[in-house]
Design a protein around this nucleic acid. Structure first.
Length: 1039
RNA sequence: GCAAGGGUAGCCAAGCCUGGCCAACGGCGCAGGACUUAGGAUCCUGUCCUUAGUGGUCCGAGGGUUCAAAUCCCUUCCCUUGCACCA
């Protein structure tokens, strides 16, 4: 409890008398958390060693080490621990290892920020509990790694009571891990899955390669920039080429003129045997992408104006005209003009045509200028032949500098790209879709030498060091070939048999794998990680070194316990233990690893692998998971490919995603102390399905905390029961719990933690309370139910479960007890139906009472002095025998008629729709059969006939027939033979009679139960007539 | 742009795959009552409209399939998320 006043303290003393006295909830939980964690770890129940049990290996995708984690991260981790605990309790030998991903520049960047005393960073670290002493250490990247490794383990995972095997902990910068990664890359290389080709990547002039992404770990500005590919178009003009950059190469057929900014001093650059004219800014960038560029001199833009240049593809001479919208920092600072589809071009021509002064100033031929006419080239849906002109008019733009021109440009580009078709002016491309023509025309021009390519960032990007970031050519970049068709196919096929959650992702992963293509896998520069085995200058990139690693957890134990050293972890070593390659004696001689160890590791690998479940956040769906799957498929034998993937969504802040670097949520240890770990675990498990984001809301956690308290109080009350009588409600409770066990096991088979939590912490709690409310007082029943319940809780709220378990007199851990199992003998469907029946009777009575209240209110409105009528005695009349008889007949007739699902008309017609073949004869037959069967279901005449054949019932005439019809209708709506049977077996009169006093206390007035067959029963309003099976008639006598 | 997900009563959130015990689990909030000196504690009850336990309307909007639709199909509006050298 976060707000414990002195009085609440007193209450708690009373409430927790059986568990713990004298402390507030949060103090109490903190105390028991530490206590049980110590006991678990001392007893090593978390440690995983090979044995004869079936194994279960589960991990979460290890977190990147870039600082403190926040409460959101614990969501997925908690799922993993809870699933692991459940599996452990259902007879599995569970391995749940953890690690951290330190590859990358997160630690480096953090260390640098600490070193230079960055205020925001220091503040953030201190808010998370970092001391001044710690800060000193954090100036060195590897210390950052070890510092946070410790924080993650001690403050997060152990704090949450995870039964992780700590001996297996590894970090990606551990030497043993590096050895493993190098082995992995040698295997990829052997399989021909590594290759080199030039690559264009963002790089700082000073620091080398940097990552441009929104989190801006490498950057001080421009994290949202995107790489744009420009097609460079060369326009022959005298002895040089004017080079324009465009993102719309498909528009070359519409070129009418060329734009030059008169105020820019352009440069002449020699490249191969051509001379290009471009802006100086673009030259700086281009140098990084093209070899052998040489500055020859400069040329003022003004000087170019009025010349003629030969446009590519169309080979027409077009005039060079002045335009101020050509910015030297964008593209090449030179622009080709396509007024049909480019609003800027249209506007500038329009203005120039009407500005004689300007024409004169630049010495242009007025006739030539005025003769320029836009050439329609693309038919775009919703536009005429000249989209630019059309949109400008529609938007009412009249000036060259109008910012809406940009908006117009984007609109036309977007619409043109998706809906446009090249028209007859476009030579061989006429009739082709823009999407297609764009690529084809670009290729054509590249081949003919009329065009080239140039990459640029969409906005200014500045490195952390202050230098600009440009796109730089990396000539010998290594890639992993994830597009490899064979591996892709194998992986896709394997996924079909995997347990992938959510189901959407199960389907989508097929598409993701198709889409997954070559991926740059090494980088240079400031970076922690493993050296690339084939070339030391490269370091393996962060996604690529975290794909096969789960298998390394099996080995990491031997490494961290010093049984093997990194120099012994050779290619031969891994080949043997992971692939079974080679002869154990030879391997032992060569590696110096002793035979036993080699044998043990190999056996461990065979035992533990494949991985049963890999859980990760949704960001992994298109990044980590496909790589994880494909590396397994590429390197390991088929029987070691993973079995399951679980994708979880996020915990967001109220204003958006909680960010690791920006903070926004309270530190994990603080939350744990404030609410209690088990309350938090329950919160994660139950707040929503794992496949939806939830907003972090402390109020919500408080309610889960309150629920835990309520459960504890209920447990205390149950423990106090001393009775020996057995009532109906006793077998009801046991049966109920038994049903819950069944449901929970079904849930957990699908890793449905929320479903499980709902049963245990909500439904079962209601059962316990109902039991006591109904007068259940039996000590044995209570004890049995309690033991089941506490075991049920152990996966999600283990600390409290242990504490209660101990208070029940157990000396072992509930964490390794057997999870409750469904027991046929405990099942009492009749008892469950009976209690349901009782509840529905109460509901009906309350419904009537509500109506009475409403009526009283109405009367009071009209006549304030009237005395409101109050329920005096409630009369209940249970169904007469003859109706039961009809019910029995209906059950017999209809019970066996339940259609198999496939024959139901709706199912069949849906099948027909899906197959798209309405003539499918099999389906048609099924459809007919379904129809026929359905008509049989509505067997009203049949039932009526049967009823009338019975003399006794026939005597009642219409009354019997009416009831038969009603019943048949009812049955057709919701026929369940089991329920019908149980209903018939229930003696309603006896049952309600016994519950009379309970009903009276529930409803607050006298209750009298009669049978409708009892002719002596008082029935002033003749209600008894209306009674039916499971629906007794009710009369409330008002006083 | 590409790919995916979602819109459910005041709010949060189940259900949807496998149509029918769905006026729609549960929680919060709110209202009333009980217990109390008091309560932000706890326990009961209620919480779409109407109504002696019935009926009506309802699951973003509009169509359709079906004996039957929150659930299946189509159209449409709105929102969210991921997108590669970033972990």
């Amino acid at each position: 409890m976060c707000h414990s006043s002195p009085t609440t303290m007193i209450l708690i003393v009373v409430v927790y008398s059986c568990v713990k006295t004298g402390v507030a909830m949060s103090e109490w939980t903190t105390e028991i958390e530490a206590k049980w964690q110590k006991r678990w770890y001392d007893a090593k129940i978390n440690e995983a060693e090979r044995d004869s049990r079936p194994k279960f290996m589960i991990i979460f995708a290890y977190p990147g080490l870039t600082g403190y984690l926040h409460v959101g991260h614990m969501r997925g981790y908690t799922y993993v621990d809870a699933i692991g605990r459940f599996m452990r309790m259902t007879g599995h030998n569970v391995m749940f290892p953890v690690g951290t991903h330190a590859t990358g520049n997160g630690a480096i960047s953090l260390a640098r920020r600490v070193e230079r005393g960055d205020q925001k960073t220091i503040e953030y670290l201190k808010n998370n509990g970092c001391t001044d002493e710690d800060l000193e250490k954090l100036k060195e990247p590897l210390s950052v790694v070890s510092f946070f490794n410790d924080v993650y383990i001690q403050q997060y995972w152990k704090r949450f009571g995870f039964l992780s095997d700590w001996r297996r902990f590894t970090s990606t910068v551990h030497p043993g891990y590096s050895k493993f990664i190098q082995w992995q890359f040698r295997k990829l290389h052997d399989k021909g899955l590594l290759f080199q080709k030039p690559y264009f990547a963002p790089a700082c002039i000073e620091c080398g390669p940097v990552a441009v992404d929104a989190s801006e770990t490498d950057l001080s500005k421009g994290g949202n920039a995107e790489t744009t590919e420009y097609t460079l178009l060369k326009f022959k003009c005298e002895d040089y080429s004017l080079v324009a950059a465009t993102v719309r190469p498909e528009t070359v057929y519409g070129q009418t003129n060329f734009w030059v900014n008169p105020d820019v001093e352009y440069v002449k650059v020699k490249i191969n045997d051509e001379i290009w004219v471009i802006s100086p800014q673009s030259f700086e960038k281009m140098k990084l992408q093209k070899d052998g560029m040489e500055l020859m001199g400069t040329i003022p833009g003004r000087e170019l104006i009025g010349k003629m240049a030969t446009a590519p593809v169309i080979h027409r001479d077009i005039p060079v005209l002045p335009a101020k919208f050509c910015k030297p920092e964008v593209g090449t600072g030179l622009v080709t003009s396509v007024p049909s589809d480019a609003p800027d071009d249209w506007m500038s021509i329009h203005i120039l045509k009407n500005n004689d002064e300007m024409i004169q100033e630049y010495g242009l031929d007025p006739a030539m200028v005025k003769s320029i006419k836009a050439i329609p080239i693309i038919d775009t849906k919703g536009y005429g032949p000249l989209p630019a002109a059309e949109l400008i008019e529609k938007m009412g733009i009249t000036e060259a500098g109008d910012p809406r021109l940009d908006e117009a440009k984007k609109m036309i580009y977007k619409d043109g790209f998706h809906t446009g078709v090249m028209n007859l002016n476009c030579g061989p491309f006429a009739g082709m879709k823009v999407e297609e023509a764009k690529e084809k025309m670009k290729q054509m021009m590249l081949e003919s030498g009329e065009a080239d390519l140039f990459y640029d960032l969409s906005e200014e990007v500045i490195c952390r060091c202050g230098q600009p970031v440009f796109i730089k050519k990396v000539p010998d970049q290594w890639f992993i070939d994830y597009a490899n068709p064979e591996v892709t196919e194998q992986t896709k096929e394997h996924c079909k048999g995997m347990h992938i959650l959510p189901a959407d992702y199960y389907n989508n992963v097929q598409g993701v794998l198709d889409w997954f293509r070559e991926r740059a896998c090494v980088r240079q520069g400031n970076w922690l990680g493993t050296r690339f085995p084939y070339d030391d200058k490269w370091i393996i990139e962060a996604i690529s070194d975290s794909t096969l690693y789960p298998v390394y957890y099996i080995i990491s134990k031997y490494y961290s316990e010093g049984v093997i050293r990194e120099d012994e972890m050779t290619e031969e070593f891994f080949d043997y233990v992971l692939l079974g390659k080679g002869d154990i004696k030879t391997v032992s001689e060569n590696t110096k690893v002793d035979l036993d160890t080699l044998h043990n590791i190999r056996e461990d690998v065979l035992y533990w692998y494949p991985l049963d479940l890999n859980l990760g956040g949704k960001e992994h769906m298109t990044v980590h998971f496909p790589a994880f799957l494909m590396n397994h498929a590429a390197i390991l034998p088929k029987d070691m490919w993973p079995r399951g993937i679980f994708v979880n969504w996020y915990v967001t802040g109220k204003l958006g995603k909680i960010s690791k670097s920006k903070g926004g949520a309270e530190p994990i240890p603080d939350a744990a102390g404030k609410f209690g770990v088990d309350s938090l675990r329950l919160y994660y498990a139950h707040i929503a399905v794992p496949f939806a984001d939830v907003a972090w809301d402390e109020d919500a956690i408080v309610t889960y905390e309150a629920r835990m308290e309520r459960i504890l109080r209920t447990i205390d009350s149950l423990k106090e029961l001393k009775g020996t009588d057995l009532k109906d409600v006793d077998s009801w409770l046991i049966s109920r719990m038994n049903t819950r066990i069944d449901t929970i096991r079904d849930c957990m088979y699908e890793y449905d933690i929320r479903g499980m939590a709902n049963e245990v912490y909500f439904e079962a709690l209601n059962d316990m309370r109902w039991y006591m409310r109904r007068g259940g007082r039996n000590k044995k029943t209570a004890q049995k139910a309690l033991e089941i319940w506490v075991k049920m809780m152990a996966p999600i709220t283990p600390h409290i479960a242990e504490e209660v378990w101990e208070s029940l007199g157990h000396e072992d851990f509930v964490s390794i007890a057997d999870y409750p199992e469904y027991d046929e003998n405990d099942s009492d469907f009749g008892a469950e139906i009976a209690e349901e029946y009782l509840e529905s009777v109460i509901d009906d009575i309350k419904e009537i009472m509500k109506v009475i209240d409403n009526q009283n209110a109405k009367i009071a409105e009209e006549n304030p002095s009237a005395t409101p009528k109050k329920p005096g005695t409630i009369y209940i009349y249970t169904t007469p025998m003859w109706k039961m008889k009809i019910q029995a007949m209906a059950k017999d007739m209809l019970g066996n008629m339940r259609l198999p699902a496939l024959l139901r008309p709706a199912a069949v017609s849906r099948e027909m729709m899906r197959s798209g073949n309405e003539n499918d004869s099999i389906l048609e037959t099924a459809f007919d059969a379904g129809k026929k069967a359905a008509s049989r279901m509505l067997a009203i005449p049949a039932l009526t006939k049967a009823v009338m054949a019975n003399n006794e019932l026939k005597k009642r005439g219409k009354e019997s027939a009416d009831f038969a019809r009603k019943l048949a209708e009812e049955f057709n709506k919701k026929s369940d033979v089991e329920i019908a049977k149980a209903t018939l077996e229930l003696n309603e009169y006896d049952y309600l009679k016994e519950a009379e006093s309970f009903l009276a206390s529930e409803l607050g007035c006298d209750v009298k139960v009669y049978s409708a067959d009892d002719s002596d029963a008082p029935d002033p309003q003749n209600k008894a007539r209306a009674s039916a099976p499971k629906r007794p008639a009710i009369y409330i006598d008002l006083v």
